[in-house]
Design a protein around this nucleic acid. Sequence first.
DNA 1: GAGTTTGAAACT
DNA 2: CAGTTTCAAACTC
Length: 984
Amino acid sequence: MDTSVSSELDELGDTTPLPGLTLYDLLDPSTSSKEQNLESDDNSGADTDNKRGYVVKKESSTTTNELLNAPGQKKAQTVRILENKRLTAPMGTALKNMLEGSVRVVTTPTKTSSATDIKILNKLQTKPLNAFGNAPVKIGSTTIAAPTTSPKNIGGVKTAIKISDGKVLYLQKSTLPVVSVTTDRSAPTSSNIRHAILPKGVTPSGTPTMKNNASNSSSLTVRGLTTVETSKPTGQSLNAVATNESSSSGLLKSPSADAASIPVATKIQVVRTADGKLIKLNQGSPPVLLNAKPATLGVRTSVSSTQAAIPTAILSNNSNKLMNKPTAQVIIKGPLKQLPAGASLRPVINNSSSSSSSSSNSNNATTSTSSSTIASATIATSAGSSMPTGKMLVQSSTGKQIVVASRNIIKLSPKPSTSTTSNTNTTAGGLHAIQLPGKSGLQYVRVLPNNNSSSNEIKTSPQKVSLGRPRTTSNNNSSTVSVSNTTKIVMKTTGGSIVPLPSMQTLVPRRAPGATSNAAYTKPLSNSSSLDAARKHRLSDINVQLKQLTSDNVTDSGSPEAKKARYVIAMPHTSMTSATGSATSTASTSQKHMQKLIGARVPQVKRVPVQGANMTGSNSNTTTRKVYNLVTKSDANGVKYMICNKGGEGKPRTVFNTTMRRGYTLADTKLRRPLALAAQQARLKQMKPHQQRQIVAQVKQRQLQLQKQQQSTITKPQQQQQILKSTASQDTKIAVPSKPLFDVLKPPQMPVPVTGAAAALDALGGSRRKHCNCSKSQCLKLYCDCFANGEFCQDCTCKDCFNNLDYEVKRERAIRSCLERNPSAFKPKITAPNSGDMRLHNKGCNCKRSGCLKNYCECYEAKIPCSTMCKCVGCRNMEDRPDVDMDSMDSLADVKLQANKVKDLNGTYIQDNRSNVYLTDDVIEATIMCMISRIVTHEKQNLPIEETEREVIEELGESLNQIITFAKEKNDTFHTDDHKTTAA
DNA sequence: GAGTTTGAAACT
DNA sequence: CAGTTTCAAACTC
């Protein structure tokens, strides 16, 4: 399948946004020579947890772009998108669905089967594998099971594993195809046990039931495991983070299973092998092994579980047969069988939930393996020597097997979900829309052919991995991500923003030395080989770091580099914070800070109502549902794009009556209003490829800007505390800046094109503010409004424009330069300190001659009054008052202007100071005294300061009114006298 | 449309 | 940080 944009547009044609599915992670144990460090790490559980995910000891400052462009770079890209978690309006429904965890999975009609598609890029392993029981079980390079029995085994077969909550898991190596792991909260009684057959020493965790195919002699079946703690004598919890995530991650709990019978599913973070090594099963994410989540793995399956639906990783063949399965299965197969030559390399890792699913399209032969089990995964592990290190065999339910590098498997996030319904639909264009429990939107996944033949890895199939994962923070946002071993990714939002993601790393602000809380938004500083860096910079790492961000006990264990986040596309989750009642978001923190900066004064100006502005004060939580279709696409240059289709909220538009100058369009998210996703998609379809790329790149631009902003936002200690506080309450929720990233990523909100400003419409149909006309700045300076707004120049009349994808390097350099000069360069200039507050210019204007009554003035242009932040001279752009209309003020201004322009005898204008006649010292003093009198009166009455302030201002207004009236009268007299004089 | 004005951005 | 220059939009004619 070609990954043309057009086809992707078709995919995007499905308008229903998916719940926050995000590209979560790539499971890459094999590549982690660095992970070996972790494996051998015998540190305490806390340390282990802290270090989780910090696989990379040496960070590379190499930008993603560079990495992606590195020749021969075929590593699967790990991208994490922290989506904006705002709920779509109506919030009630969306939030409810989200909280309930309902997820609907829909597949595109073009494909016979629906499946989240994962492109397997690795070489095919043709070697037969040893039986599972005879060889170490490996996933990737990680050995999850050793052939030898450990002293902990019970009867030489079972291994008792104590989990963090006191449960005991018995891991038993069995020759039987299915191994059961039982968990018992108190004792290894058989009654209250869940079975999973695991090799000794292997402690799978909170993962979907992994059941091998019947054909497989040796397999792992892990059901409903909770966070697993090895029975290491140290007793140190290896999974500190995961322990309390059961509610949020809700991995395995099936709807039918009650809490008593089924332990709360949690995710395994670390597993200790028989040889005593600690194996990191995943990085900060609940998913085990394949990272497949129990509930949600099954596309099209409706999983009803009190626990949150888990992200699903689906490896499916092009037919996507498994997608139609109502069940979510992840099968891990032990021995790898020799694949027949030419055999289809389309592995399917299908996760199906046994829960009550109402999937309408269950065409799959695969059925849920167990009623209670949430999901099963079929994965052929590289058994012993037969399987190359870092490879695993993935077998579909149809029996097809493929050897893949584990790093090419995208790990889905363990998003818990409580809803029980899931629907699957098939959309045209091969796009599969899935709805996950707890998600009100749809996630689209798609199988795309791998066109990159230059990869040194054998491509198993022309498939592309499209994985989405619900975030741990519930949201309505969904994202479809297609990941392939491409060099460049572009994210495109249906909102009209398309961002190239090749240099996602660059989007992450540099991490300040010693900074901890903002580590997630930092990028590595050090330079290293592109290959290593690319591999290192994985979403999983980010996940861990983000998770770490949520922890107050962030330590500096390991190298400082270890904590640097990579490839973070932070998606603020404001909605969830409010939905969950968690702490305030970063944005609110920032707003508070801004409010402090501007002081108590909060102008109540209503002189120029902003049309379309969401002044209802509705929180930003309620609006966003997005679908991020991260589909790699290669252009002529080999640049691949990840299209992020933001649904729900749609393309934002500026609601201003007039066009806004630079900076305003990024401002208040409340000003953005949703645009029908379908309309956006339709517009996008109409776009030409280069236009689409442009838009995609814009998203990146905005991401970069927002990342920078977010970094600066969270640097303040109190803000960090707030973040930590909020995130701590959210368990697995990742602390991300509350300001929705994709609000920023959105195209600037422009006035709805009412007239023939069609030219102002951007490619996505959204109104485009205007077109720049830069001639000397190359559109790479803030002079250029397009650049300043994070947009690419489109249909502009600029000269020598570098503000496009063709000059991305220069562009990014320019962006950095701007940010170096002013970290807030791309921040919104106009923001509202609090919801419902009057917007204010953050920096204030500096007008000298315009009186702030011309569009030269940014405040005036933004239709907001000048504030104390302004340094303007002769400002007349002041707050409006009910009793003083601006017309009067304008009249006064006119009087002044007229008075100042008095022709002398030669006919030239001379300065006339009569305008100052009205504002004598006495008048001013009297006015001030009146105001002071108000203050004194109020103080005596102990009235609120707000009221005092209000009345003082009113007093001032009244005084000005009188002055104006007087001035007008005098002016009339003046003109009359002047006329009489002239006549005389 | 050309020229002027203006103020933010950039520079020194 | 202040002053100057550059720049592009806003404005005027």
